[in-house]
Structures are given as structure tokens and as C-alpha cells.
């Protein structure tokens, strides 16, 4: 079915159809949630963890402990995305999964849910999986960035009476801005492109509760043989990613110039 029959020029019909398609809007609403889970939350958690590991654990307890903990947080990142889906698909399975079994054995049967099969919980379950998967990346990036921070800046701030939190927000976060930009851009783009975990965990379901653009495009290309419509979805996704990257690069460049000035 290569080509999917005879192509026919239909102008922008596929794009107007997109705008009226609930599934299209659902897939982009879900992406907003996944950007929160893959970019925003891991960046925030990563900042705190990196600062605590670098600034406190490495100094007060020892650099070996700090780097062992860092490796622990990073481990999920080395897995193929499909394998993370398999691990969590089993843990969250309603009939034989580990999570419900744990809840039942702790006498918390009421909390046991059909985590991926119930539209009320499916997206949140996927979000938790993605936070677990992503959090190690910002931790590693930010810890390496923090090595650049001049210790004298810290000492000067301490002498001026700045507490740990103030030093962290005023000095550390400011100094590792390049890393924060890189992490935010790359994780946001990764969220926009997410496919493997969705394919393995939920196939976009139940209904369209976890549908994402890449899976939506894949469905139209290879399951429904609606090549034109699939291409329209893929084109919109590609445009969003390119525009977003250009905007991020601009903001970053402007910020660097301001810092130099």
C-alpha cells in the first residue's frame, strides 16, 4: 500500500479537518501535561537534587557518596524507552501488577486502581513514569554545571550573611543558566516527540486519554492508511518543534549578550 492509492490535490483540507478533530486537540492537551512531567518537574527537582548533592553531600559526607547517588538517579535514563514501558506496564497492570499487589498487601485495597486503563488516572500514571525516567538527566547536567561556579562567590555571599537557600537561588541557579536552557529545550522537544512509552504503555488510550501527536500520526499512517492526514499532523508537530527551538535559541543568545554587557 505504498503511496496509499492515487494522491489527489485537496488543498488545505487535511489541515482544516485537524482543527475540528477532538483527537488532535486532545493529543496537544496531553502534550502540555507531558511537558510538565518531562521538562518542568524534572528541571525543578533536578536543581534541588544537584545543589544538595554538589553543595552539601559532596562536601559534608564525601564526593563518592554524591556520585553514587547521582548514578542511582541517572540509571533509568540508560534504558531503551520501550523497556521503560515494559517495566512500568507490568508494575501498573491492574490484574497482576506489582503496585496494586503492594497496596493490597498493605491493607490499602481502596487505593488500588486500574492505573493505565482508567481515563481518570491514565495520563497521571504516564506522567509519573516520565518523571521517574527523566529526573537523572538534569541532575547530571546541573552537577557538572555547578563545578564551574567560583567557590569565592559562595564564600563572599556567606560572609555577607546569605543562607543556603539564598546562595542557591541567587548564585548557583544564575551561574548554571546555560545548562538550564539546554535541559529545558531538549526535554521539551523530547516530550513533543514522545512515542515509545505511549506505544508500549497505553497506545494512546483509553479513548484519547493519553493520545500524543506522534502516536496519532503513526495511527493515521500505518493503521488507518490515511497518509495525507498523518502527514498534516506530522507537519504541525515538526513546525512547532522548529519554532520552539528557534525561540529558545534566541532567548538564550539574548541572555548571553545581556550577561556580557
Amino acid at each position: 500500500m505504498a503511496g496509499g492509492g492515487y494522491p489527489e490535490w485537496i488543498g488545505l483540507d487535511n489541515y482544516t479537518r485537524l482543527l475540528e478533530d477532538d483527537n488532535f486537540w486532545a493529543s496537544f492537551r496531553n502534550i502540555i501535561f507531558l511537558i510538565v512531567a518531562m521538562a518542568v518537574v524534572p528541571t525543578l527537582i533536578g536543581l534541588v537534587l544537584a545543589a544538595v548533592l554538589f553543595d552539601y553531600v559532596a562536601k559534608a559526607i564525601g564526593p563518592r557518596t554524591a556520585s553514587a547517588l547521582r548514578s542511582g538517579f541517572y540509571l533509568p535514563q540508560v534504558l531503551p524507552v520501550a523497556v521503560t514501558g515494559i517495566v512500568w506496564g507490568w508494575i501498573l497492570n491492574p490484574s497482576f501488577g506489582a503496585l496494586n499487589a503492594i497496596l493490597t498487601s498493605a491493607q490499602l485495597d481502596g487505593l488500588a486502581k486500574n492505573w493505565l486503563g482508567d481515563p481518570a488516572y491514565a495520563l497521571y500514571s504516564v506522567m509519573v513514569v516520565m518523571i521517574w525516567f527523566q529526573v537523572g538527566y538534569p541532575v547530571v547536567m546541573f552537577m557538572s554545571g555547578l563545578q564551574r561556579v567560583d567557590p569565592e562567590l559562595y564564600e563572599a555571599a556567606s560572609i555577607d550573611g546569605a543562607g543556603w537557600w539564598r546562595r542557591f537561588t541567587r548564585i548557583a541557579v544564575h551561574q548554571i543558566k546555560p545548562e538550564i536552557y539546554v535541559v529545558l529545550v531538549t526535554t521539551t522537544i523530547a516530550a513533543l516527540k514522545i512515542f515509545g512509552q505511549i506505544y508500549v504503555l497505553t497506545r494512546g488510550g483509553p479513548g484519547n486519554a493519553t493520545l500524543v501527536p506522534s502516536y496519532f500520526a503513526y495511527q493515521n499512517f500505518f493503521e488507518k492508511a490515511q497518509v495525507g492526514y498523518g502527514s498534516a499532523i506530522a507537519t504541525v508537530l515538526a513546525l512547532i518543534i522548529v519554532v520552539l527551538s528557534v525561540v529558545f535559541l534566541r532567548i538564550q543568545a539574548r541572555d548571553e549578550r545581556r550577561d556580557l554587557a
Binding site: A2, G3, K193, F195, S214, A217, S231, A234, T235, A238
Partner: peptide, 25 residues
């Protein structure tokens, strides 16, 4: 740089079609 940014979702169908045409699918 742009080639890096393009999602595989946008490449997949053209590549699928081409690979079928040249017998590499």
C-alpha cells in the same frame, strides 16, 4: 541543525515510501 530538530514522525512516511520504491523496506 534543522535536520537535528526535525522529528522522526515527519520523516517516517517519506522514508517508508522511498524504501519501498528502492526495495529496502
Amino acid at each position: 541543525l534543522l535536520a537535528n530538530l526535525l522529528p522522526q514522525e515527519a520523516l517516517v512516511y517519506p522514508l517508508y515510501y522511498l524504501s519501498k520504491e528502492v526495495g529496502l523496506y
